[in-house]
Design a protein around this nucleic acid. Sequence first.
DNA 1: GACAAACGCAACTTGTTGTCGTGTTAAGTT
DNA 2: AACTTAACACGACAACAAGTTGCGTTTGTC
Lengths: 204, 204
Amino acid sequence: MANRPKPDAPPPRTRPGGRSARVRSSVLAAAVEELAAVGYASFSVEGVAERAGVHKTTVYRRWRNRENLLLEAMLERGREQVPIPDTGSLRSDLLAYGKAIAAGVRTPEVEAGVRAIASIGDPDSPLAKASHAFWDARLDLARRIVEQAIARGEIAPGVDARVVVEAIIAPIYFRLLLSGGKLDRRFLERLADFAAAAARSGSS
Amino acid sequence: MANRPKPDAPPPRTRPGGRSARVRSSVLAAAVEELAAVGYASFSVEGVAERAGVHKTTVYRRWRNRENLLLEAMLERGREQVPIPDTGSLRSDLLAYGKAIAAGVRTPEVEAGVRAIASIGDPDSPLAKASHAFWDARLDLARRIVEQAIARGEIAPGVDARVVVEAIIAPIYFRLLLSGGKLDRRFLERLADFAAAAARSGSS
DNA sequence: GACAAACGCAACTTGTTGTCGTGTTAAGTT
DNA sequence: AACTTAACACGACAACAAGTTGCGTTTGTC
């Protein structure tokens, strides 16, 4: 009944080149700018459209609503990866990683994006799901730091790599989002000391 | 020029009893309910007013805007303290404390409040400042857990109590707000193991 | 060059924020 | 018990953003 070879329902040929591509990238870039500039609460589609030099309806036609627009803008940004360091010791690997994470959240764009995601209450929201997938992948990659230490014989196998990595990452975001504590070098060094010490003592 | 004894500017005598007190408490309770029910993004003053059985203008006259209303509602709630356990060992103290924190964030009201605060970008906002003060106080109280362990001779003095406590608290909020990881007993036990191990190895 | 996606533009509905003026209720005073 | 007025109820209002719709214009793509 469906999929006849005849010109019954001529598939609307999209045209992703030229103007469409320019509009798309400029809108997504503008969305990130807007988010960083005014915050999630005041984030408006009209503001994004103006910033992108594009009409409001154009944005609405391509991204049905605010959330979809933000989702795609952040997925675009979320591709940037934090490199996994390999400096020769667990402690300095963790420190380097922590510094990279902290440097990230210090940029207004990343900070605003993190806050936006943290404010999503519905766990079934596409944005929330994207965040969970993002962190699953990132934490999985960071496990390599612990695996390198095991391979060097620096720590015993069986250590829960995820807990070690979260021990570096989580306090950074906790201070950013809630406690307002400083993210200075001294703090990051203590974090690295702490996590490395726990890993060495083999808390599986 | 000012402050004449004559009835020049008769100080408007407030009257905080009876109806005013009832309105105040019912509105603040309704604000927490509303926040838990619809989330920060959809949190509307009208919704709060309806929920409290009060007119919109009444809310606006007493709390100039949304933020002030939320601030006072959350300050009211923020008084509830997490008890500091004293079970005889650092590991089980940390575990008990982590369980209490996790139980808190599992309630819709607390979770919604945390997300609302995390979404505030401006560090000078009254809500952000209140959150920082709240966490300063809470972390300071929780240091007692580490001090008890030092007093028992379980760990060496000089350990950074704040880092130990944050090692329990931060991953819970990280999972809640960003990674979506589970907050089950297994996770909390690993956290306690991890933090206790690091503290025992004396990472100052 | 021709067709039709994709865009620009204006007008519109709906919902929330926050304000204002006026009348009503009830707390605190005498 | 009566009086004064703080605090509340009600309706109307302006300002703004979310989305939607219809129509005309630009511009990829064949």
